[in-house]
């Protein structure tokens, strides 16, 4: 019943969302001083939002184009891995390495929290207008 989106359509949605995400990231970088604080906000916040989106979209039929646009698109473009690795590789001492490991743990916890928060919401909606959802 749920056919996957055509490949070109999927790539176009991810690309368009990523452009918007990159612009948002550039805007936030202008607002928050210092490279590490903004990376923490973007990456850990983006992981939380992706967890929420994934939990929310689980078992939904409608808006299947919205998930690639917002997930790998906007949130994929908003969050970044390369700025973290280049910043850490270009800084001396064990501090940057500890920050990368800390950010990895924080990202996992944030994404997990997002999934759980959205999962609780969809269970309470079961039987509602969206019909009995497939429990995640």
């Amino acid at each position: 019943m749920d056919q996957p989106l055509p490949a070109a359509c999927h790539v176009a949605l991810v690309a368009a969302g990523s452009a918007a995400g990159a612009l948002l990231r550039a805007a936030l970088t202008q607002l928050v001083p210092g490279p590490w604080p903004v990376l923490w906000v973007l990456d850990v916040g983006g992981a939380l939002l992706l967890g929420l989106l994934t939990g929310w979209s689980c078992g939904r039929r409608r808006g299947r184009w919205l998930v690639p646009l917002l997930g790998p698109g906007v949130l994929g473009g908003l969050t970044t891995f390369s700025a973290v690795t280049v910043l850490a590789a270009g800084s001396p001492g064990p501090g940057p390495l500890a920050a990368v490991l800390g950010m990895t743990v924080a990202g996992v916890l944030a994404a997990w929290a997002g999934l759980l928060l959205a999962g609780t919401g969809s269970r309470s909606r079961a039987g509602g207008p969206d019909g009995p959802g497939e429990a995640p």
């Binding site: 790998p72 994929g76 990202g107 996992v108």
Partner: peptide, 16 residues
């Protein structure tokens, strides 16, 4: 380009 090619959110969610 590099900022959008790389991603932390999917990296985190795939680990979860």
């Amino acid at each position: 380009f590099c900022g959008a090619l790389t991603t932390w959110s999917t990296f985190s969610l795939d680990l979860v």
